[in-house]
């Protein structure tokens, strides 16, 4: 192919080097991190996974083998056999800090912008689409993070709320976007926040959003989402800068 213009070269830019098996590994890993699949849960049978993911059997096998090698799943034979989730792909604090340090200020701001945009779109649609019953359930989920007793539990509870907002919007795309954003950010956020000290305001923020939704107050719900995300981002940025550029007693 000869000369491409700037815009055209964007169309043909290299695809992300994620093979289908890797995509399945990522999907399952994300679901476990966000608490959508829990320890001890049984995965659907191989032929079902093949149909659900729409890939070849060999691809599913490759993905499961990778997860098995990582100690995340285990396959048992026999009558009560099957493939079970036995491990959590929890990165240690050092790995999370490395991930955080490698994100630039611009990338963190951009990620925060996308989270705020997605969340604000979700609440706007939720006001139009959700029922009182939906809000009851959301309210129960909103408080979960306040009772979470570990970093991992905070990641699950917090993620659950943000995914549920997109669920109430009745939008698969918003749900998918939210899950991708959470898989990038939720663990970093809760490695920066202190579960004991910070879970209370996280829960209060969530509840305030639910209260605004119940009243049908889109503006209040949206500013609730925005402030919540802004505060999270502030804490993440400060943590990153303080660990990269410690400045003695001044800070």
């Amino acid at each position: 192919m000869g000369q491409l213009s700037g815009v055209q070269s964007q169309v043909f830019r290299p695809l992300p080097d994620v093979l289908r098996a890797d995509a399945i590994v990522d999907r399952l890993t994300t679901a476990i991190i966000l608490g959508l699949l829990r320890h001890g849960e049984k995965l659907p049978a191989e032929n079902k996974l093949t149909a659900m993911f729409g890939v070849a059997t060999a691809t599913v096998r490759d993905a499961l083998q990778t997860l098995r090698d990582q100690g995340i799943i285990e396959t048992r034979r026999g009558r009560s056999g099957g493939t079970f989730i036995v491990g959590t792909p929890v990165p240690n604090a050092d790995q999370l800090l490395t991930r955080l340090v490698n994100l630039s200020m611009a990338e963190l701001r951009d990620m925060s912008d996308e989270q705020a945009s997605n969340g604000m779109a979700a609440v706007r649609l939720a006001v139009e689409r959700a029922s009182d019953h939906d809000f009851d359930r959301l309210e129960a989920i909103a408080g979960l993070v306040g009772a979470a007793d570990s970093t991992e539990a905070c990641v699950w509870a917090d993620s659950r709320f943000h995914i549920e907002l997109a669920v109430l919007a009745q939008s698969e795309r918003l749900v998918q976007t939210e899950m991708r954003l959470l898989s990038e950010s939720a663990e970093i956020l809760w490695s920066v926040l202190d579960p004991t000290a910070d879970r209370a305001w996280a829960a209060a923020d969530h509840r305030a959003i639910v209260a605004a939704l119940r009243k049908g107050d889109v503006t209040a719900a949206q500013s609730g989402v925005r402030e919540h995300i802004t505060r999270n981002t502030y804490r993440i940025v400060e943590h990153r800068l303080n660990s990269m550029y410690p400045t003695g007693g001044a800070r």
Binding site: M105, A106, L108, R109, T233, Y234, R235, I236, V237, E238, L241, Y245, T247, A250, R251
Partner: peptide, 28 residues
């Protein structure tokens, strides 16, 4: 980061190029 305050490098259009804290985010 050596500045003991929230500090930002700002362009002639008032946009932030770089900030030394969570207060001043680039592009705002």
């Amino acid at each position: 980061r050596r500045i003991d305050a929230d500090a930002a490098l700002v362009t002639n259009t008032g946009r932030i190029l770089l900030g030394n804290s969570g207060k001043f985010l680039v592009g705002n």
